[in-house]
Design a protein around this nucleic acid. Structure first.
Lengths: 230, 230
DNA sequence: AATGACTGTTAAAAAAAGTTAAGCCCTTAC
DNA sequence: GTAAGGGCTTAACTTTTTTTAACAGTCATT
């Protein structure tokens, strides 16, 4: 599950500020809007932000000064500057402070979003391996290594068995929609893929048969449901 | 002790290409200039680059296609696009591929430098081991010298073994796409190259067998995944 | 109860991958 | 020049995985 990103937005122009605020919120970010650099700096020190967007020209404390202050205490947090017109000297100064990007007004919201995502992609830790371990009744299932710890020797699942069982586990006790599952695993929900899925459901039932509290139930015309009783 | 950055530059216009080449060289980078996307892709797979600068419009293979191919096998290397004029759709497409930045011609050399440095500052902090040395479980693998430090005598890998293992390492715990890998290492994803690759997978499995936490797993119809259990 | 769409299950067919060995090509050594 | 060896590809055969077929059973609706 993705964590919501906290964005610190410093912009004195209310028109633009509110627009950005609502746009970014609509895109699933947490956004705090501050009217000048001084307030933004105070706020930065109170909470944990993942991303900064600063207007260069602001009363009280301009964007560059704000960025410098912040770089004193945080070398890594990404900072993106907004400026009224394309001033080459400004750009250079911004980058020398340690800006990660730079946008000239006016700009499109889509582009802003794209840049935020590009910057965040880089800073994301690429090596976080979520452990995909589920308990189905008292049968352990490790989707990462594709092992199902049945009695005796663990069973090594095939790619498709693994994908399907994982989806069932993620939706344990809920209905797993037939068409959505087909599109997710097989890419297309045509007749033959549907039959293929039914074959895999049969395989999984056979594997899980040893624990009789486990049931993969069919909801006619809707999909399947992994049920684990008491 | 800063290591010299290797920059892959793909630009078909010789005027701009040579200008960029000499400018960046003068700033202390190693730069390789290729005239089209196809050549650039081949080169990318032969050496280790830290940064890519691609013109969008090029013969043989355009910058976007090139970037897509590269992203299949390397999710992290920074890519900066150059384009003749500011086309919003182009920008968006570029970012969606996973571009890190975007510059519209004409631009100043200083700004280019500033952007490269901004991008590198970020990726430096996140990745510190790009010396082509990987740890696979407790087996050390130095792709530079092609040595795999197995028990007893280190094994000297062949070119293909080395290339394949390196790609697997770069995508550790992720799926390495079969077709993309074939295009990257063999240049073409026909049937026989596919079989050749399977032979090399078998060789690598044999070499890595001594550590049973290591597994090269097949994802049927998709590719391979180097899995290292903790 | 009859109909047709949907599901359960097993088996056969097809496609993909695992493995070992033979063959080919290029380089190096005699 | 030719023999030897390494590296890569191709071949051959096996096994695994997935799809398709076939047939039986179920469910909702009429």
């Amino acid at each position: 599950m993705e964590k919501k990103l906290n964005i610190l937005l410093a912009e004195d122009d209310d028109n633009l500020g509110l627009l950005l605020h609502s746009f970014l919120k609509s895109k699933g970010f947490n956004v705090e809007l501050l009217r000048n650099g001084k307030l933004a700096f105070e706020r930065f020190n109170q909470a944990a932000f993942d991303f900064c967007i600063f207007d260069v020209m602001m009363p009280e404390m301009d964007g560059f000064t704000l960025a410098k202050e912040i770089r004193e205490i945080d070398k890594k947090v990404p900072i993106l500057f907004l400026t009224a017109k394309s001033m080459k000297e400004d750009k250079l100064e911004g980058f020398s402070i340690g800006a990660d990007d730079y946008m000239t007004k006016p700009f499109s919201m889509e582009e802003l979003l794209a840049r935020i995502e590009a910057i965040m992609r880089r800073s994301e830790t690429t090596q976080n391996v979520e452990d995909d371990v589920y308990m189905i009744g008292n049968i352990k299932f490790d989707s990462q290594s594709r092992l199902l710890y049945t009695q005796g020797e663990p069973t090594k699942l095939t790619t498709k068995e693994n994908q399907l069982l994982k989806l069932l586990c993620k939706n344990k006790n809920e209905i797993l929609d037939r068409q959505a599952t087909l599109r997710a695993i097989w890419g297309d929900d045509n007749y033959f893929n549907g039959r293929s899925m039914d074959v895999y459901i049969a395989k999984l039932r056979k594997l899980l048969r040893e624990d009789d509290r486990i049931e993969i139930m069919n909801i006619h015309g809707k999909g399947f449901q992994l049920l684990v009783k008491n």
